[in-house]
């Protein structure tokens, strides 16, 4: 077990010392992944709700597509976004490559299908319960989708958290589009990858523990909020 003792101590020392560089890296990780998750929710949740409630040609194909895209390999997303944002690519003129914005775009693309697919499941369950009542009241399908999104907000926090977890844990996409530039685009996962390749496995593992702790803390807060809200609203 002693392989784990040293990283644990290192992790604790890093946190206790309130290491400024570490704080910057953690904060950047949070910013990038929260922004990406936010975009993914704004785009993915309405898509998920319409897939659950709507009736239009190609709906089944889209459901399978979004479920499949949940397993999108981060490296592939990274490469696609890289080619788009590269100076030689179609969006090169914006000069976004190797910036936090590029990382946000890549993670948003990665996470949107996850949010959409999980939202579809949540809303589909709600729809089967609410369908007759909403139709009886004369709600259009679009209106019903909006109603269910708001009504399912506590359950949907799970979809958002799943997306966030995926975003903050992935390394392949941000490494490629961010370039792991010290102080600019270096986040938790790319730092861990870097320290691993430098052979400093204890430090890499220590950073890994901190990443896990951050993700756990966010989940715990979200869980507590959801519990409180559900007790309040039933």
């Amino acid at each position: 077990m002693h392989e784990f003792n040293e990283p644990l101590i290192t992790a604790w020392q890093l946190v206790a010392a309130a290491d400024e560089r570490l704080a910057g890296i953690v904060l950047l990780s949070l910013r990038v992944s929260l922004a990406a998750t936010l975009i993914a929710c704004i785009v993915g949740m309405p898509i998920g709700a319409l897939l659950a409630v709507g009736r239009f040609p190609g709906r089944r194909v889209l459901i399978v597509l979004f479920n499949g895209l949940m397993g999108l390999p981060p490296v592939v997303v990274g490469l696609l976004i890289y080619l788009m944002l590269s100076r030689a690519g179609p969006l090169g003129a914006f000069g976004l490559l190797f910036s936090p914005e590029a990382m946000i775009i890549a993670q948003a693309v990665l996470v949107t299908p996850i949010v959409a697919a999980l939202t579809r499941q949540v809303i589909a369950d709600e729809w089967s319960e609410y369908r007759e009542q909403l139709r009886s009241l004369g709600a259009s399908r679009t209106r019903a989708a909006a109603t269910l999104l708001w009504d399912g907000r506590f359950s949907l926090s799970t979809a958002a958290l799943a997306g966030f977890g995926r975003a903050i844990a992935e390394v392949g996409a941000v490494m490629i589009v961010g370039g792991n530039i010290d102080g600019v685009t270096r986040v938790m996962t790319t730092t861990i990858a870097l320290e691993t390749s430098k052979g400093d496995l204890p430090l890499a593992l220590a950073l890994g523990f901190i990443l896990i702790a951050v993700v756990l803390a966010i989940n715990a807060v979200a869980y507590a909020l959801r519990g409180w809200a559900e007790r309040h609203w039933g």
Binding site: L30, R31, V32, L34, A35, T37, L38, F98, S99, P100, E101, I104, R153, V184, L225, A229, H232, W233
Partner: peptide, 29 residues
């Protein structure tokens, strides 16, 4: 209360996400 809580959480997240991710600086790649 929850609507306010929900909205403020959302606002806090977006604020954190948007806060001047990079100040303009002179750099080369």
């Amino acid at each position: 209360i929850t609507r306010r809580l929900f909205c403020s959480t959302l606002a806090a997240c977006s604020l954190l996400a948007a806060t001047a991710i990079h100040a303009q600086e002179r750099y080369i790649t």
